[in-house]
Design a protein around this nucleic acid. Structure first.
Lengths: 210, 210
DNA sequence: CAGTAGCATGACTTCCCGGTCACTTTACTG
DNA sequence: CAGTAAAGTGACCGGGAAGTCATGCTACTG
């Protein structure tokens, strides 16, 4: 009947989104390990059983919630990464995006941290069955590519792009996490400046440079 | 009777150590979240109840196991950090220590990762009751101090030592984790060289430097 | 507006785990 | 070597969470 989506489909998507948003809030508040289906249901204002009409099980819910959240961020990141212009400018834009995005999406950051590695938590193993790369790895690949391009164009020194992406990504993450824990942090711009300096020039004293 | 330790005390220490080593292996294999007391008991070849003769509860066991493991590493790290000599040499020693230590103590690395932040996992809250800093924070403080000294002596550029320690520590951790996941990694020395370059000089192209 | 399809519910079932404790085994002592 | 104190054991208990399903409810249909 309807051109693209039936009424039922729209309603279903709305339910799914509502539940995922509730899940994100609860995980953000209590941590992934301490999050129960009951708590998510209460947060969403529905009964526990209802969740199982839209998600196979807890793992399915967590996974799809995390993927969805990560995908939203990934879109914004890709916008920056594929942009034309000097590497340094794009790097600054990227760091600024991160600082600001996580500052105003604190819930999301907890999920991001909990999901980016299966370490610490119980092993997952059931990742979609299909040989699909975990979203964080996809993100790292994009980042590697970004650095690889800058190496090709001679804007940065040539080195292992994969390792570089890892090192910088996790270094940045740790500072973002610290910012969220602090009661008072330096302004975003200053933080970005410091990270830029660290990333671009390292810590050696310029006076002492050969 | 005995000069310093009674037979019973020695035996007790031996039991404690046996259990902690078993715990470390299981956590290293299954992850912290999926580790049960039963599994640890089986690994240690004892009954579950026996564990409770030496540890108050699960949290006590995990905490003391982690603290013990961390303390062993901390001793080695402090040796390096307090050493006289040029900053750059000590930094290299530190990185080498990390790469080699984790390479030959893979179990330990999982615990280290799981415990360094309470993030992802359910919140801890019961940290010793007393206002004791978590071991990882203590380690970060030492690292900050290490960088602070190098700033004072003019060996490295002055910046926020706390942030620096975080950034570098987590950057290094992420690469170490990746090494453990890979089937084949570059030799330790090459890895250290790359990290040194990254940390000391950043990624900007030296040809393009002002 | 009666009939019905399927959505929503939450009490219930099942499972698992941390922690306990009555009983067994070990090892020391006189 | 008998007696006993301490260490060790694992069946059991209580609690809590994931997942199910009989029942109630709602909203569409003819």
């Amino acid at each position: 009947m309807s051109p693209t989506k039936t009424k039922a489909q729209v309603l279903e998507e709305f339910r799914i989104q509502t539940i995922q948003e509730a899940a994100a809030r609860v995980i953000g508040r209590d941590g992934l390990g301490a999050t129960t289906m009951q708590a998510i249901a209460k947060e969403a204002g529905i009964a526990k059983g209802t969740i199982y009409l839209y998600f196979r099980d807890r793992n399915d819910l967590v996974e799809r919630t995390a993927d969805h959240a990560l995908a939203r961020l990934a879109t914004k990141v890709d916008e920056v990464l594929t942009r034309q212009g000097p590497f340094v400018e794009n790097l600054r834009r990227l760091l600024t995006l991160f600082v600001e995005y996580f500052e105003s999406n604190r819930d999301f950051f907890r999920i991001y941290l909990a999901v980016r590695y299966p370490s610490g938590e119980a092993e997952d193993k059931t990742r979609h069955q299909r040989a699909e790369l975990p979203p964080y790895q996809v993100y790292l690949d994009h980042l590697s590519h970004f650095f690889g391009q800058a190496m090709d164009s001679g804007e940065i020194r040539r080195t292992d792009a994969e390792r570089l992406a890892l090192f910088i990504s996790e270094g940045v993450n740790s500072i973002l996490l610290r910012r969220l824990q602090e009661t008072e942090s330096p302004p975003a711009e200053l933080e970005v400046d410091q990270m830029m300096d660290m990333i671009l020039f390292g810590i050696s004293n310029p006076d002492a440079r050969p």
